[in-house]
């Protein structure tokens, strides 16, 4: 009974927050609603027994995406001193109505065809459970991401690298203004807070990575948490944008992709299939490299800068 009530509240909340996001009176309000929407979605995933997705949604969907949207909003304000106050829906009403009708039709059709979906689990999913012991990890999500479908994960690292390269290319054409510094540069508590929160973000990131073998977690969630620590350092003015990326940063950006590909290629030339993992240690090695690359990419995207340096 109580479970149904919780589900109902989550379901109504998700729809309500989505509406608030679209109809928000200002961009700022829409962003805040979007962040809360992400958190509630994470709860929805948890209720659907997908804890890995819940973690990823909370860390990346709500956390990092929210931070990126907010910092963009602040940059826009710094650039032309004002942001559009009108709701997003009010500026192009016909387009909004048309896309609303289209989306509604899509949802109805989706619901209708979902009724005829077979109830039994899909064949590939069953196989993943059966052959998981051969991988050596007990978390099936890690098994899929780093063994069965490692090639997907590798290509996704390429997508992340492309996102950063793309942001850098566009930034160098558009030259957005520098991130406005914190309003109250040195509140005494900021330092104390950072000295607590940043090490904890590192600890949680490493924990998530290590736990990923047997429980929900892994490189993507850990990377997002570590990136949150970096974002805090940027926000509080401890790190500032640099003109060029240092060699360490460049190595860090491609580390995940390079380590993953090289292990795969070494196995290929040793007569194994491409991307076969030589053992659990290799999975953890690849995940560590992925975590570092993901965290660094996300922080650099947040700072919209080629590199970072310590503030004087």
């Amino acid at each position: 009974m109580i479970e149904i009530a919780i589900d109902l509240i989550i379901a109504m909340g998700v729809v309500g927050l989505a509406l608030q996001t679209i109809l928000g009176a200002s961009v700022f309000r829409a962003i805040l609603m979007f962040i809360v929407f992400g958190l509630l979605m994470a709860m929805a995933w948890a209720r659907l027994h997908a804890p890995d997705l819940a973690l990823a949604e909370a860390a990346i969907g709500a956390g990092i995406t929210g931070a990126l949207l907010l910092v963009t909003w602040r940059r826009l304000q710094a650039m032309d001193g004002r942001t559009p106050r009108v709701g997003i829906a009010a500026r192009a009403p016909w387009l909004s109505i048309a896309s609303g009708i289209f989306a509604a039709a899509l949802i109805v059709a989706l619901g209708w065809v979902s009724l005829s979906l077979p109830a039994e689990p899909a064949a590939a999913g069953e196989l993943a459970w059966q052959r998981l012991p051969e991988v050596g990890v007990s978390n099936p999500v890690t098994g899929v991401l780093l063994a069965f479908r490692a090639y997907d994960t590798l290509m996704e690292m390429g997508v992340l690298l492309a996102a950063w390269l793309g942001a850098r290319a566009v930034a160098s054409e558009l030259r957005p203004g520098a991130l406005p510094g914190p309003a109250h540069a040195e509140v005494p508590l900021v330092g104390a807070l950072l000295s607590l929160v940043v090490p904890i973000s590192l600890l949680v990131a490493v924990y998530l990575l290590q736990a990923g073998g047997s429980a929900p977690g892994g490189a993507f969630q850990g990377g997002a948490v570590l990136a949150a620590g970096g974002v805090l350092l940027c926000l509080s003015g401890r790190l500032e944008a640099a003109e060029r990326s240092s060699i360490t940063e460049r190595i860090g950006l491609v580390l995940g992709l390079a380590v993953f590909s090289c292990i795969g290629l070494v196995m290929l030339f040793m007569g194994e299939p491409m991307l076969a993992m030589p053992g659990v240690w290799a999975i953890y090695l690849v995940e560590t490299a992925l975590l570092l690359s993901i965290a660094l990419t996300l922080v650099l995207l947040f700072a919209a800068a080629p590199g970072l340096r310590r503030a004087p």
Partner: peptide, 9 residues
Amino acid sequence: LGGWSAPLG
């Protein structure tokens, strides 16, 4: 790839 035959891999 990886020696995991389809539909798994």
